[in-house]
Simulated scan of single mutants.
Amino acid sequence: MERPRYESPVERAIREAQERGEFDNLPGAGKPLDLGDTSDPMWWVRRLAEREQLDFTGALPPAVALRKEAATFPESLTALRTEESVRAVLEDYNLRVRRDRLRPPDPRMPQLLAPTVDVENLLARWRELRAAAGPPLAEPSAPEPRRRRRWFRRR
């Protein structure tokens, strides 16, 4: 292979790496690229999100994000220990739904509304899930407070 008269530093680094064999035996070498469905204009974004395991829930419209959150109830609440904490989460969700309904709709998008949830119904289902999971864990006891010695008694 005849080298050109001038070789940029990048081209030189690539040539030297090829000579050292650093590009040999790479995964997927000699195989065609799998581009999937290239008729979808956002195919590359979907592949990137899948490959990098990105979470785009923050980019969703608020009503869609609220609907997604409601779809996980009451299973997502099983980690909460008390009925008051479950009630607080559900009432906070309903408050966020009501606030979302007060926002003016985007004229470029169809208006989406997230439904409020029935707090008492979900509390009953949460109790059933907790009962099926087994006995509740004991509350951890607070450690005894240490007595501090005064500075003049330390000596």
Rank of each mutant, 00 (worst) to 15 (best):
W43F: 14
W43Q: 11
V45R: 06
R46P: 00
R47D: 02
L48K: 08
L48A: 07
A49S: 11
A49I: 02
R51M: 11
R51N: 02
E52T: 03
Q53C: 15
D55E: 06
D55L: 01
D55V: 03
F56G: 08
F56A: 09
F56N: 04
T57W: 07
G58M: 15
G58R: 10
A59Y: 10
L60E: 08
L60A: 05
P61G: 07
P61R: 15
P62N: 06
P62W: 04
A63P: 07
A63E: 12
A63K: 02
A63V: 08
V64G: 03
V64D: 11
A65D: 00
A65K: 01
L66K: 03
L66I: 08
R67T: 11
T72D: 08
T72V: 04
P74I: 07
P74Q: 04
L77Q: 06
L77E: 01
L77R: 13
T78P: 00
A79M: 14
A79F: 13
L80M: 12
L80Y: 02
R81Q: 15
R81L: 03
R81Y: 07
T82I: 11
T82H: 14
T82P: 03
T82C: 08
E83A: 06
E83V: 13
E83T: 02
E84C: 10
V86S: 00
R87F: 01
V89T: 08
V89I: 09
V89P: 00
L90M: 13
L90F: 04
L90V: 10
E91Y: 02
D92Q: 12
Y93D: 03
N94G: 01
N94E: 13
L95S: 15
L95R: 15
L95Q: 12
L95A: 14
R96W: 07
V97L: 14
R98L: 10
R99W: 08
R99D: 13
R99T: 14
D100W: 10
D100V: 04
R101I: 03
R101V: 05
L102C: 14
L102I: 05
R103K: 11
R103H: 05
D106R: 07
P107G: 04
R108V: 09
R108D: 10
M109A: 02
L112K: 04
L112V: 14
L112C: 09
A114R: 00
V117H: 01
V117Q: 02
D118H: 06
D118Y: 06
E120S: 03
E120H: 03
E120G: 08
E120M: 11
L122A: 00
L123D: 01
R125K: 14
E128S: 00
L129P: 00
L129H: 12
R130H: 01
R130A: 00
R130G: 00
A131R: 10
A131C: 06
A132W: 02
P135L: 04
P135Y: 00
L137G: 13
A138L: 05
A138H: 06
A138I: 09
A138Y: 07
P140K: 09
S141H: 15
A142L: 15
P143C: 10
P143Q: 07
E144F: 02
P145E: 12
P145L: 11
P145N: 12
P145K: 11
R146F: 13
R146V: 09
R146A: 09
R147L: 10
R148V: 05
R148W: 05
